[in-house]
Structure formats: structure tokens, C-alpha cells
């Protein structure tokens, strides 16, 4: 009887542990409007997500996001992919992020991580650092640095993930 009880107990523990989902770390950062944003809420109804860390002082980052921006409408139509661009600019330049984003006409979600909390939680050492996540928030691939044309390889992976290959 005791044995069964133990078995049940252990079984319950392992089940309860399995029920926890693995997804992005929960860190409270800000939206462009200055509202709180919980990073575990980064999602796209089961479709792929591109998560890119950047800053105003980083030229290659802006080149990468410009490249995404040019293709975004097409990418969204084909695969439903959603892009989140996380600015790690601190308080010296957070006020300039929204005007730059709008001025450049970027249409993706932009978030502010002014003290690098999300950056640290994602183990980002240098930027640009771009993650590709599947519909469950699991990291499929990631890449540091940006060179012209790298967006094409990334998009191949997005298509594969979205089953559009």
C-alpha cells in the first residue's frame, strides 16, 4: 500500500514538473510607450518569431533591421512570422528610440530593455544578436553579427519552421 502511495506521489511530482512549459524567461521590460511588458508574453499564435537585440549606437543592427523592414510585409504574408526588436539603449537614448523607429518606418514590435535585464537573461554578449523562435517560444537558432544577405538564410529557416518550404 505504502509502495503504491509512493509511486503515485512520485508520479504526481514528475507530472507536475512536466506540465511546466519551457519558453522565454520572464523579464519585465518596457514597450515604446513606456508600459510594462512581460517577455514571456512574446508569442505569435504558434507561428515563428524573430527576436533581435539592437541599439541606436549599433550600425550593423540598424542595417539588419532595415533589411527586415524591407521584406517584412512579404515575409508576414508568406509565413506569418512576427519580428520583435529589443533595443538595449539605456536612459541616455531611450527617448530617441521611438522617433527613430517611426522615422525609419519599421513596422515590427519594438521593446526597450534599458538596463539589459532581458539581454542578460538571453545570454546576449554582443549585438546584433538575433534569435529565431518556434511557435512555442523555443529557440531554434540564433546568430551574432549581421552581414548583408544574412536575412535570406534566416528567412529560409523561417519558411522551414512555418512549413512553407
Amino acid at each position: 500500500m505504502k509502495k503504491i502511495f509512493f509511486l503515485c506521489f512520485i508520479g504526481m511530482i514528475s507530472l507536475s514538473l512536466q506540465a511546466q512549459e519551457t519558453s522565454l524567461p520572464k523579464v519585465m521590460i518596457k514597450t515604446l510607450d513606456g508600459q510594462s511588458f512581460n517577455t514571456s508574453g512574446i508569442s505569435n499564435d504558434g507561428k515563428p518569431v524573430i527576436l533581435s537585440f539592437w541599439a541606436l549606437w549599433c550600425k550593423p543592427c540598424q542595417k539588419e533591421l532595415d533589411a527586415f523592414s524591407e521584406l517584412y510585409a512579404e515575409w508576414q504574408k508568406e509565413t506569418g512570422v512576427k519580428i520583435y526588436a529589443v533595443s538595449i539603449d539605456d536612459s541616455r537614448s531611450t527617448a530617441r528610440v521611438a522617433p527613430l523607429v517611426k522615422g525609419k518606418g519599421w513596422e515590427f514590435e519594438v521593446l526597450l530593455d534599458p538596463n539589459g535585464d532581458f539581454k542578460r537573461a538571453m545570454n546576449v554578449n554582443m549585438i546584433p544578436h538575433t534569435f529565431l523562435l518556434d511557435g512555442n517560444g523555443k529557440i531554434i537558432s540564433q546568430h551574432t553579427a549581421y552581414f548583408d544577405g544574412a536575412e535570406l538564410e534566416l528567412y529560409e529557416k523561417v519558411k522551414k519552421l512555418a512549413g512553407k518550404n
Binding site: R96, P99, L100, V101, K102, G103
Partner: peptide, 9 residues
């Protein structure tokens, strides 16, 4: 102030 294509700070 920001709108599509224009940002001023």
C-alpha cells in the same frame, strides 16, 4: 512626436 515616416524628439 512620432508618426509613420517622421520622428521628432
Amino acid at each position: 512626436y512620432s508618426q509613420k515616416g517622421l520622428g521628432v524628439v
